[in-house]
């Protein structure tokens, strides 16, 4: 009964990864007439000294450091605001905030490319100008080295927050209501109930969603490829963008596979951190 699944996992997850590990020690290149050579750890040494990769990893890290706290906080706020049993509009709001999750990232990127149009004709610029009572200076978000990564972060949060919100809502529904009643009897106000009941009870769900989002921050690709192609001047390049460029545009399989190994190490590190956080007892 397990054999089809095991076959699938072996063939499409474990074997490719093992292959990737092997190829990362070679100079294999797709379509090259030269025979493949074992090059030891050369690919890794090159990666270590590669400024383009350092730039990409720094962007992933920035992405994680901004998007994870921002998206988690926003999702938590929405979940708490919408968790009101018997409130009719809750369903409508939930649908609104969840809707972008159903949108493929490619479509999200296309919509936001329109929003980010340069000049005051661009909808995002117009909105910011209106909100700032005309103080906003129109920018070309996607071509401005200072703004491009932030622009990608914004649309990623827009698309991702709904999924975190429904997971957290599920967590909120599991909290027994007598805990709140007991806290209220003890004279705890709404803020204290949130800090003393909601947060500790939601702790594991929060850790789970934060891990999910931080791994996503190291998988970012679609929006980079569609909107900025890593530019301007590497300002939005990411690990996955580098990997695909190596494998697909330059056909350097050795380098792409070394990047794959690096990516898996990052994912395992993040997962290990999550296990540690889950094991630590709540204070």
């Amino acid at each position: 009964m397990v054999s089809p699944a095991v076959l699938g996992l072996l063939l499409f997850v474990l074997a490719p990864f093992a292959l990737s590990f092997l190829i990362s020690f070679t100079d294999l290149s797709l379509g090259s007439p030269h025979p493949m050579h074992w090059v030891g750890t050369l690919q890794y040494e090159r990666l270590f000294h590669d400024p383009a990769l350092a730039r990409a990893l720094a962007n992933n890290l920035r992405f994680a450091l901004v998007v994870v706290p921002l998206q988690t906080a926003l999702a938590l706020a929405l979940a708490v605001l919408l968790h009101r049993p018997g409130w009719r509009l809750a369903g409508l709001y939930r649908a609104i905030f969840f809707a972008p999750v159903v949108f493929p990232m490619s479509l999200v990127a296309v919509i936001w490319r329109y929003l980010y149009a340069p000049g005051l004709q661009g909808p995002a610029n117009r909105l910011l100008s209106w909100l700032s009572l005309g103080h906003w200076q129109a920018r070309d978000f996607l071509h401005d080295p200072e703004w491009a990564l932030g622009a990608l972060m914004a649309l990623s949060v827009w698309q991702g927050v709904g999924l975190q919100m429904v997971i957290l809502l599920g967590g909120l529904q599991q909290i027994p209501s007598d805990l709140y009643e007991a806290a209220a009897l003890d004279g705890a106000g709404p803020l204290q109930r949130f800090r003393r009941v909601t947060l500790p009870m939601l702790r594991n769900t929060l850790i789970f969603t934060a891990l999910m989002t931080s791994i996503l921050a190291f998988r970012v690709f679609d929006q980079v490829q569609i909107l900025t192609h890593g530019g301007p001047a590497g300002a939005t390049s990411t690990l996955m963008f580098e990997l695909v460029r190596s494998a697909f545009e330059r056909l350097q399989m050795g380098r792409a596979c070394a990047l794959t190994v690096l990516f898996v190490l990052i994912v395992l590190l993040l997962t290990g951190l999550q296990r540690l956080a889950l094991r630590q007892r709540a204070l």
Binding site: F221, S246, A247, T260, V267
Partner: peptide
């Protein structure tokens, strides 16, 4: 396999 995202096998599978 749960924690390994598809991106981790994209390059070798592509090959």
């Amino acid at each position: 396999c749960m924690v390994i995202p598809f991106e981790a096998v994209a390059a070798p599978l592509f090959y």
